[in-house]
Design a protein around this nucleic acid. Structure first.
Lengths: 239, 239
DNA sequence: ATCAGTTTTAGTCAACTTGACTATAACTAA
DNA sequence: TTAGTTATAGTCAAGTTGACTAAAACTGAT
């Protein structure tokens, strides 16, 4: 038996085509809030230029090409749509509900990424690519609101547990900046003294001899993160 | 432009076909070890009856049909190959390295499951379906050794954190049985007194009035787990 | 009946961690 | 010089953890 699928298949034919596979990315960066000036969570979205959901905002994404691993596809897509190179990239989840898209069956393998503020400032922004505050997104295309919610949950989880916060920051940072990352992501206030005691007790934080000058107060010491992010189980792109 | 893919495509044609999508499952159950009699981790594998890796053992898996969500596909597959109904089922990871299979590009969305010992005892076993100790697997087909390692890591992680252990057990259990789950999965000895203090301090454990009779020692009280497992972000199979 | 063997269960104690809070240090701007 | 600001160290009580002791409650053998 020979089964034939075409890219311009009608609905009846699509019933038998394999589900199509897409890669999307939730990209987080810290940017100063317009109101308070404190850092808050933002993410870039792209406007859909075709049906379904034409005109609505959606997560950046695209197809998986033949020669690249899932992770490579995610970081290529991220670069192509926003010009960004992430400092952290991890698989979030494979979404495969039957009715995610009204026109065809799509399985989306979603990654989430963190970018540093210097990177984020360089990001391309245009009519069809814009940054939004993570807590003020409005209604997105497909199930993308749910996906962002889940990515936020994972980010908060990972922050509470591990050593993810430093990927929002540059190579050198003050402990107050680390605290601001936690405060922005978890949306709470933290006691500065207790917070620094905890952070300093983790072995992956290294004191440098440098201080950050220029504030109108006692200059804070600069630190460095020496840990490596845990490798994903599947990212062996070039064997 | 019309692109045509056939199920009997040759290698050159497959280059342009979309990567195919498969669902696999890592199924864990506790069974008594032959040597010590204590519970240990086991999982069922199926023997491959065709190339590639013909004759080797592999994770149970199969295709994704059109009308079912990823999770539904995983539990259907699990039922078809082993006859099992899992008490816990969660997505593990989407594996999509370029060279996972020598003959074609395959993206595998892998689930992991826990089954209760009563279930596990009923599981079909045959020439081509057999249970193995998780720490004595030998060399499996594809990248399945790596997948099992990752599933083990996730299981241990989840155990240390959350309320997963009870899905290995029946509705009623003693605290010593819970401890045996931890000891089997983490492969350590735990102090009985300290362990029970910790478990009893979690609010989801409920004392029953019943005791387990029949041991040659003081009869232990039976407990019940009242928490619900966290829902996966995508398992809305029937909307 | 009693005793040894077993596991269950409660409790103690020191070491460590956490959250709330106080106080001093080191800078800038007026 | 002083007020304002953040950085940084330290204290203290409450809570948690790990190592350990001991009593309770059953069975099976003497």
């Amino acid at each position: 038996m020979i089964t034939v699928y075409t890219t311009s298949a009608n609905v009846a034919e699509r019933q038998f085509a394999p589900p199509s596979l897409a890669i999307s990315t939730v990209i987080f960066a810290l940017r100063p809030s317009e109101s308070s000036g404190r850092p808050t969570l933002w993410l870039p979205l792209v406007r859909r230029i075709r049906e379904p959901f034409k005109g609505l905002w959606a997560l950046p994404g695209g197809p998986l090409t033949h020669a690249e691993s899932l992770q490579d596809a995610a970081s290529r897509n991220l670069r192509e749509t926003t010009g960004l190179a992430p400092s952290y990239l991890e698989q979030l989840y494979a979404f495969g509900g039957v009715h995610r898209s009204p026109t065809q069956r799509v399985v989306s393998i979603v990654y989430w990424a963190l970018v540093q503020p210097t990177e984020a400032a360089l990001a391309d922004e245009s009519e069809n690519v814009r940054w939004f505050r993570a807590d003020k997104l409005g209604s997105l295309a497909f199930d993308h609101n749910g996906i962002v919610d889940y990515a936020l949950w994972r980010l908060r989880n990972k922050l509470a547990y591990g050593s993810i916060a430093y990927h929002f920051l540059g190579e050198y940072f003050t402990l107050a900046q680390v605290r601001e990352v936690y405060e922005a992501v978890l949306d709470t206030q933290l006691d500065p003294a207790n917070f620094r005691r905890q952070i300093k007790s983790t072995p992956e934080i290294e004191e440098t001899g440098e201080y950050l000058q220029g504030g109108k107060h006692r200059p804070p010491r600069l630190y460095r993160f020496t840990g490596r992010p845990g490798l994903d189980p599947d990212n062996r792109s070039t064997p």
